[in-house]
């Protein structure tokens, strides 16, 4: 993936980069690789204050390699920045990775902000260090699916294809 910086600053990154969207060059090369249907476009991001990005980068890369158009937000995006990115990028889905324990607060807020922007049909899903017993609460607040540690990237790609594919958006 190649960086697309909002501001064309030097790569020391001293200037603010929110929402620092990163577009997948790999997926650009595979434009229309899925046979003429509209390519699935989604935001993959980190909200909250934690910096654990091993998982989110692996998922972003795998979804791009599976032919989807993935916009990676970068670290520590506020719920407002995530929802705004979903609007600006006309995304069909938002996948969030949260390992800070703030999942209940952040998912709820992102769902609210998406709905406020008229993006009720944008599918919200995610993963991270999330206790199984929190999953029902997350689903109730409108999180479509929660993936736990050890999930294969193929399973996530299948889910995204099944849930967001088929020309629904």
């Amino acid at each position: 993936m190649v960086a697309r910086r909002n501001n064309k600053s030097n790569n020391l990154g001293k200037s603010s980069s929110a929402p620092s969207a990163v577009r997948s060059a790999a997926s650009a090369l595979k434009r229309d690789a899925d046979g003429g249907g509209r390519r699935i476009r989604l935001i993959v991001g980190k909200s909250g204050l934690d910096g654990h990005d091993r998982g989110v980068k692996i998922v972003a890369r795998a979804l791009a390699e599976a032919g989807m158009e993935v916009i990676y937000t970068g670290l520590r995006q506020t719920p407002e920045q995530i929802a705004e990115a979903a609007l600006q990028e006309d995304a069909a889905g938002v996948g969030l990775s949260i390992l800070s324990g703030a999942h209940l607060t952040i998912f709820r807020r992102v769902r609210e902000l998406l709905d406020e922007r008229g993006l009720g049909d944008v599918v919200l899903f995610g993963g991270g260090i999330i206790p199984a017993e929190d999953v029902p609460a997350l689903q109730k607040m409108g999180v479509d699916r929660v993936f736990g540690p050890g999930t294969s990237t193929a399973e996530i790609a299948d889910y995204v294809r099944g849930r967001l594919g088929g020309g629904t958006k």
């Binding site: 960086a3 790569n11 020391l12 980069s17 970068g74």
Partner: peptide
């Protein structure tokens, strides 16, 4: 000192 922001590379 200013703040640092990530390099946005995946």
């Amino acid at each position: 000192f200013g703040e640092y922001h990530e390099l946005d590379r995946v």
